[in-house]
Design a protein around this nucleic acid. Structure first.
Length: 631
DNA sequence: GTTAGGG
DNA sequence: CCCTAAC
């Protein structure tokens, strides 16, 4: 054993190692360093924010976001099916945009609002943009469907001959989401959902159907301030052509885009940091090795990907332009439409808030599929790549999903609450309402496919899409000269852009699923459960430190806690720290399970002893390298 | 990967 | 218990 080699435990007691380790207090203290590097974390945050913004934008660009879901609160009765959805653990979250019906709203008096996610499960011929009403089943996500709920489309770029706009004829008439089938029929894919509810019976406002889809049109109610989003919209429109002309390999970042959008759920820096560094890094590292599959591999480990031929990268929301625009029904009030946002916007907050019988208008802005990496051999066919992607997505979908509602980061558990009781009503600050799609992680994945189930994304700040499936390159068929009709009809996985390139539907759509995956293992970013040290543990720790000294926590761990997985050497170090502190304060000030004074005395003694040893080592070093003083 | 130290 | 700089 390593320890044995390194240690000479000898008999019990304060046996001084020949060369005690120098305390690393000389190592810079963070607080001091921090001042110097103060900007650094902020830069990082800015970078992360930029990435997020780009993701948002790109997702809004996401061509072919094919699904729009309308959440409608129109009847008092509850949807049984909606309730079913609540039984399954979370996987993703939908970004929802909400609006509160303004004073002009026609109130259906939805005290028991009925929310149904729609899924189009019917026809697949795709040529007929039929609006379909669906209800969500726990194991389904929206797929094979393109939502198109607007009455008209305001497209800058049309796709000739392709029916772009569905009628919203049934939008107000039902409590369900209208779905327009994708032109390409049977795609099993995850689409961005852009949904809205307009209970006022007013026609939905136009939302640009192309790349700016998902970006607000800035038709606002009186006092809404969404100018930044308007800018986003403008920029999207401006960028569109360039993007479309590009080969589709654009990187997600464009400097100019970063400032356009302030995430509504901007959270504290800590969480941001967590997502920026920890999730990106730790998630990959931790999942490394779990997710390889024999044949084609899906891999969330970035390191593996570096050797990949084909890889599906994280920057899912490329700026490639869709072929197909999706239309978002917006109310005349100008519902914001964020393609992959994760939060609500409040529509028309007004003095009438809190009054009776107002409807709450909600719109799911999008679902985003978690970020996924695909590793696949170069010699694999494009078809196999598609199948692989499909498998991944299908595995996610089929894992079973349920809907959760987060209000300002807090999950609303009680399904029996009315929206009003849940404070989702007029007059409330509804800037941060999120829906989650939750799944049973760990059971769902097909071989080699992993959703980062360690991650726990509860909370409003956790709305960054986790994994995404995307192909950097347009599928080769695009260059092979498919004609439009062939493309549209032949491949369910493709959509055609105006420029003839064919993109993975995963690129051109944004099924935003904010992962709220749970597993038995602690999620990344999730705090470990607190496990107070028991008295025997404390005794073992004290004894080990007496032998080994402070500053050799790894050895302490191996000596006394080698079989205790949940105690890391950092834990032991921390515990020792608290023991020293506990021993140095009066018994009245101590909390928690009392530690026998005798043990605390030993703690102090050992601490003093080893501190002295370390001091001697330091002074010995300082006074002249040799061991003359200490030997 | 370890250690120290601040939070 | 978390985080992270320094090593």
């Amino acid at each position: 054993m390593v320890v044995r080699k390194r240690l000479d435990y000898g008999s019990r007691g304060h046996q001084v190692p020949a060369m005690p380790r120098v305390p690393s207090s000389a190592r810079g203290k963070r607080s001091a360093r921090r001042k110097k590097d103060e900007m650094s974390p902020f830069d990082l945050l800015a970078t992360v924010a930029g990435t997020l913004l780009v993701d948002h934008e790109n997702s809004s660009n996401a061509p072919g976001i094919n699904a729009a879901a309308a959440l409608t609160y129109a009847r008092k009765r509850k949807s049984v099916k909606a309730e079913k959805c609540d039984d399954v653990p979370p996987l993703k979250s939908m970004a929802v945009e909400n609006c509160i019906a303004g004073s002009g709203g026609v109130c259906a008096s939805p005290r028991q609002p009925n929310i149904c996610l729609a899924e189009n499960s019917s026809t697949r011929n795709g040529t007929d943009p039929v609006l379909e009403s669906l209800t969500v089943k726990p194991n389904m996500l929206v797929r094979d469907s393109v939502f198109s709920c607007t009455k008209s489309c305001n497209r800058a770029h049309g796709v000739g001959g392709i029916p772009e706009c569905g009628s919203s004829r049934s939008l107000e008439a039902t409590n369900q989401v209208q779905v327009q089938r994708p032109l390409d029929g049977d795609t099993t894919a995850l689409y961005s959902l852009v949904s809205s509810v307009d209970l006022d019976g007013r026609p939905p406002a136009l939302v640009s159907s192309d790349s700016s889809s998902g970006v607000p049109l800035c038709i606002h109610d009186k006092d809404r301030n969404t100018s930044h989003l308007c800018h986003a919209e403008a920029r999207h429109a401006a960028d569109r052509d360039d993007d479309e002309n590009s080969s589709g390999c654009t990187h997600p970042c464009t400097a100019g885009n970063n400032k356009s959008y302030m995430p509504q759920y901007a959270g504290n820096s800590r969480i941001r940091k967590m997502f920026a560094s920890k999730i990106r890094k730790a998630a990959r590292n931790k999942m490394c090795g779990e997710m390889s599959n024999k044949g084609s591999k899906l891999n969330l480990c970035g390191k593996k990907i570096s050797t990949t031929r084909q890889r599906v990268q994280r920057a899912m929301f490329k700026r490639q332009k869709p072929v197909r625009r999706h239309f978002t029904p917006s109310s005349a009030k100008g519902i914001l439409t964020e393609a992959s946002g994760a939060s609500f916007s409040v529509e028309g907050q007004n003095p009438l808030c809190g009054s009776e019988d107002y409807n709450v208008k909600l719109r799911i802005k999008s679902f985003t599929i978690p970020e996924l990496f695909i590793e696949i051999p170069e010699n694999a066919t494009v078809g196999s790549l598609k199948r692989t992607v499909m498998d991944v997505v299908t595995s996610i979908i089929e894992s079973g999903l349920r809907v959760g509602v987060l209000l300002q980061g807090k999950s609303i558990q009680d399904d029996n609450k009315t929206l009003r009781q849940a404070r989702i009503c007029h007059g409330e600050n509804l800037e941060n309402i999120d829906f989650t799609l939750e799944c049973e992680a760990g059971q769902n994945s097909s071989p080699g496919v992993r959703i980062p189930e360690e991650m726990d994304f509860h909370g409003a700040d956790a709305m960054k899409p986790l994994a995404m499936v995307k192909c950097e390159e347009p599928f080769s068929e695009a260059k092979a000269g498919y004609n439009s009709q062939q493309r549209v009809q032949a491949s369910p996985h493709r959509v055609q852009s105006e420029h003839g390139s064919v993109h993975s539907l995963f690129e051109t759509t944004a099924l935003a699923i904010v992962p709220v995956c749970k597993s038995k293992r602690p999620a990344i970013g999730q705090r470990r459960i607190r496990r107070p040290f028991s008295l025997p543990e404390v005794e073992a720790l004290v004894e080990a430190v007496e032998q080994l000294g402070t500053g050799r926590w790894r050895d302490v761990k191996m000596l006394a806690f080698d079989n205790t997985d949940h105690r890391t050497y950092v834990d032991l170090k921390d515990k020792w720290k608290t023991l020293v502190h506990t021993a140095s304060i009066s018994p009245q000030q101590r909390r928690g399970e009392p530690v026998p004074q005798g043990l605390l005395d030993r703690v102090l003694a050992a601490q003093a002893y080893w501190s002295q040893q370390q001091q001697q080592v330091i002074s010995g070093k300082a006074s002249g390298q040799g061991c003359s003083s200490s030997c």
